[in-house]
Structures are given as C-alpha cells and as structure tokens.
C-alpha cells in the first residue's frame, strides 16, 4: 500500500515535470544574488562534476565504453585554454571552444586504434593514452614542462561569471544526454546497453553509435575541464592528466546509478558535499569515499537512483517511448 501511494505521488510529480524543471532552473539562476560565496562555489563544483559524470555515464552506462582516460580531454581542454590565452592572448571563449575541438579531433584520431580493443583492454588503453599525454606534456618545453601555467585571463571573471558558465555546461550536459536518448541514436544506445550482440543483429550500427558518444564525451568533457581550470587559475600536467578525474566520475555515476540520466545528478551532489566535508580529513578522505562506494555497491549495486527506479518504476527524465 505504502509503495503504491509513493508511486502515485511520484507519477503526479512527473506530470508537472517541465514546471518543476523550469522552477529549479530559475532558482539556480538566482543563487549568486543571495547565497554566500561558499555556497556559490559548491554549486559551481556540482555543475562541473555533473558535466563530467554525465559524459562518463553516456559512455560507460549506455555505449558500453568504460573509459579510464577521460582526463586526457580535461588536460587538453585546460592546456589549450592556458596556452592560447597566456602565450597568444587569445580571447577566452574561443580558447575554450578550440580546446573542445582539439579534444574532439584527438578523440577521433585515437578512436581508430583504441576501438579495436574491447572491454577491459579498451579501459586500460584509454588510461594509457592519458598517462602518455601526461608524460608528454611534462616533457614539452612549449607548455613549460611540469611547471605549468597561471591562467591570468581568469582574473577578468568573477565567481558569478564562472558560476553561470559551470551552470551552462552542467545543465547542458544533462540536456545533451536527454536529447540523445530521445533520438534514434538513443534508442540504439539503450539496446547496446542491454545487449550489444542482440542490438547488432537488430541492425544497430554499434561502432558508429559508440564513436559518436566518444566524440561528444570528448568535446563536453574538454569544455568542462577548461572551465574548471579557469576557476582554479593554475594548471600543470600531473593533475590535469591525472586519473583522479575519472575516479571522481566513476564514483559519482556508480553511487548515483549507472545508465540513468538522474543517477549522476544524485551522485554529484553526494560527491561534492562529501568531498567538501572531508577536506578537514585530507589524509583519509579517499579512504572514506572508497568505503562508501564499496558499501553502496554491495547494498544497492544499481546506485541510489537505479535502486529507486527498480523499486518504484519511476523515471523523472524518462527516455521512454510509447
């Protein structure tokens, strides 16, 4: 009985979906006007990690591409921004965009060899490419070796500016995934997620679908990376091309619910808040996050949202067709 009631209430919520979404966005838009700087920066982080996680979810949760090398696009995006603005005094916006395009081209080039590797080999392959880039950048004089850059162009921006940039990329990533899932490509992706072999014999062009996701993921991840480095002001190769980035994406998507649009939304809030709180315990923060992930995988292997959906049959941003 209780469960039925909840389901009814939830279905009511769904009827007002667009109303609720518009309201939420309106509230988010006003945050810089009334919230403290600290709160604004928390939301800023949430939006940036949301974009990263949403893209990783698109790859791992739908296209079956478990990449551990997404940091390569963050690094490429961040470095393009740094180099173009510091060495050439290029405008901010075009630098960010060019970073995205460079990441996209790089993704296209490496896709030829890397898509020949399957499953675990693909995972290791992507990681190796990112590691190779890290070593290459820290030995490349043009980008000042491991010394890094201060992105001074960021000084012209206020936290409010960055908040809106992060909001656009964060919510934009959700919209991108939602639109993809509602499209022809999305139908194929969901089929691939559920059974790749069967999808292939139903006529789904698995390779093409995966490649498109990989390219979109590279582009958006790169833009989000640039915005992050704009916020952080300082970039150097060990952090920019470090696997910590992807570890965060995996954590967010797994605890939230892989293969759902809502999963990363829930996961990112938990992750960012936890991380902020755990700053005081720097030595053990990774341990605590790891422990939480392990416990959650055992208790609710489909993540918060995945488990909720299974129990209640509720999807807020539903890609369902009728």
């Amino acid at each position: 009985m209780g469960k039925e009631c909840v389901t009814i209430v939830i279905n009511d919520i769904r009827n007002y979906k667009w109303f609720i979404i518009t309201g939420l966005i309106a509230v988010l838009l006003t945050i810089p006007f009334w919230a403290s700087n600290y709160t604004v920066s928390i939301f800023l982080l949430i939006f940036m990690y949301l974009a990263l996680a949403q893209m990783w979810n698109l790859l791992a949760g739908y296209a079956g591409l478990v990449s551990l090398g997404q940091q390569m696009f963050i690094g490429l995006g961040g470095y393009t921004l740094a180099v173009l603005t510091e060495l050439y005094r290029a405008p901010l916006w075009s630098s960010i965009l060019i970073g995205g395009v460079i990441s996209l081209i790089f993704a296209l080039i490496i896709s030829a060899p890397i898509f020949r590797m399957r499953e675990a080999y693909f995972t290791i392959g992507t990681w190796l490419v990112a590691e190779a880039l890290k070593i290459f950048f820290s030995n490349w004089g043009y980008v000042r070796y491991g010394q890094g850059f201060f992105i001074t162009a960021a000084y012209q921006l206020t936290t409010t500016h960055m908040y809106y940039m992060a909001m656009v990329i964060g919510l934009g990533s959700v919209a991108v995934v939602y639109i993809i899932l509602r499209s022809r490509l999305g139908l194929g992706l969901m089929a691939i997620r559920d059974n790749e072999t069967a999808a292939e014999s139903m006529g789904v062009e698995v390779f093409k679908a995966k490649l498109i996701c990989f390219l979109i993921g590279a582009f958006v991840t790169s833009i989000a990376g640039s915005i992050f480095y704009l916020y952080q002001v300082f970039i150097q190769p060990y952090a920019a091309f470090g696997i910590d980035w992807t570890v965060a994406m995996v954590f967010i998507v797994i605890i939230g619910g892989i293969g759902t649009i809502e999963g990363p939304l829930a996961g990112v809030v938990i992750y960012v808040l936890l991380r902020q709180y755990l700053y005081n315990y720097a030595g053990i923060s990774m341990l605590v996050l790891g422990l939480i992930a392990i416990v959650l995988i055992h208790v609710a292997p489909k993540g918060f949202i995945g488990t909720l959906q299974e129990k209640l049959g509720f999807e807020f941003l539903s890609p369902r067709r009728r």
Partner: peptide, 30 residues
C-alpha cells in the same frame, strides 16, 4: 533472427524492444 536463449533488451519496454528492429533493421523513422 531470434536467439535460442532470449536476448531481449531487459531495461527497455516491450514496445521499445520491437521499435529497435523497426528503426534500425527496417530503417524507418520512429
């Protein structure tokens, strides 16, 4: 083709399962 041990798309509805065939295999618009 069909599979001996059904390989249906478990997290998709019955309608969507069949739709995959129509949209991809038969190259129709949704």
């Amino acid at each position: 083709r069909t599979y001996q041990v059904p390989r249906t798309f478990e997290k998709m509805t019955v309608y969507e399962n069949v739709l995959v065939g129509g949209v991809y295999g038969a190259s129709l618009s949704e």
